[in-house]
């Protein structure tokens, strides 16, 4: 089944923070908070689950071509970062679930 950012948003427990391309396809999952590590190892099309919320996550998402950033554990973005995500066309989703539970939900869907 084709899973897109919109598919994820239609599932329980996920809400939009900044959505530029809801039809972006999610092909895998990567979990990590150490930006240098994520940049090198996340694959294009991954949903990247993190608890980091500073503006540098946008550069990392752009460079690694992930389908979306999923903020776990109810982490919020500051208004400035949210605006920058919209400007850069990066999909950001938030969830109150832990990284594990988000990944488990995605694992069922993918």
């Amino acid at each position: 089944m084709k899973v897109t950012v919109n598919t994820l948003l239609s599932m329980d427990g996920f809400s939009p923070v900044a959505i530029a391309d809801g039809e972006a396809q999610i092909e895998g999952v990567y979990i990590g908070d150490l930006l240098s590590w994520v940049m090198g190892r996340a694959n294009a099309g991954d949903a990247w689950i993190t608890i980091m919320s500073n503006i540098n996550i946008l550069a990392v998402a752009t460079l690694s071509d992930v389908a979306c950033i999923i903020l776990a554990e109810g982490v919020q973005l500051e208004e400035e970062v949210k605006t920058a995500a919209q400007q850069k066309g990066i999909n950001v989703i938030s969830s109150d679930m832990s990284a594990y539970h988000i990944a488990a939900a995605l694992s069922k869907a993918l």
Partner: peptide, 16 residues
Amino acid sequence: SLGFGAGMGLPNMKRY
């Protein structure tokens, strides 16, 4: 605290 400073910058530059 921003997710950097783990001593991976230069090694990553070499790796890639």
